[in-house]
Amino acid sequence: MEPHSSIYQSTMEIIVIAKQVKMADSVKCDFAGVEAAIRLKRKTDARIKVVVMGEEKDAIAQVRDSISMGADSGTVLLLENAEIDSWICAKAFSDYLKNENFDLLLSGSFPIDADTIQTGLLAGNMLGLASASHIEDIDTGEASGLLKAKKRMEDRVQILDVKMPCMFAALPHPEAPIYKTVPGINRAYSVDIPVIKLDLNDQKGKIKVMDSFKIGERKRGKCLTAISTEGAAKEIINTIAANHIL
């Protein structure tokens, strides 16, 4: 079954998906998708629903934060095991989204932003949507049912015309943060946020974690005192290269 689209008749329906990642003492939330949705909503008539996958308390908090910033509604997909395979997460998102009406599906675009590039793109592809990552800007297209998107690449920018429904993994815009508003906060605490418990026990993942190893605490490293200028530059470059940065 394919996702339904209202084909942008009057109000564009946007769904933002975000998967939370639990860390030792906090939860990593990704707001790049919802920020992109709010920026688009400022340009056109749109309704934004946020679907957050995570543990109940933290996921509800992220939905509330998103509504406070400008989203309209939200749902929590309750995940009891945060360490679950991204294939299973993407499958759970796509199963949920099959029954939803939307024109545009958005996620974040960096693996460091709570892993949603992987999960978001997988979900978009599972739904058979035209998908694109590293989207910097979205605008309404020249014709009805089209979106114009700017994809940031390493050495260029592509301007794409994309038929809805479609999926974009959006880049964050740290230089132009979207803040919560007082009416938004009021709305966030007055709307119902449905919590849907995911039953993923029978789902088989594709990847398993063999082991994990912690990167050590910071210590004083090598300190070179009597080194030539050329030798110092070489040592720096070698160290950077050995750490996979060059």
Binding site: K206, K208, V209, M210, I215
Partner: peptide, 17 residues
């Protein structure tokens, strides 16, 4: 690296595929 960046995970195929 995991989401914290301070832990690395070693991953293999769950299914042997």
């Amino acid at each position: 690296p995991d989401a914290t960046g301070s832990v690395h995970q070693r991953l293999v195929s769950e299914t042997g595929e």
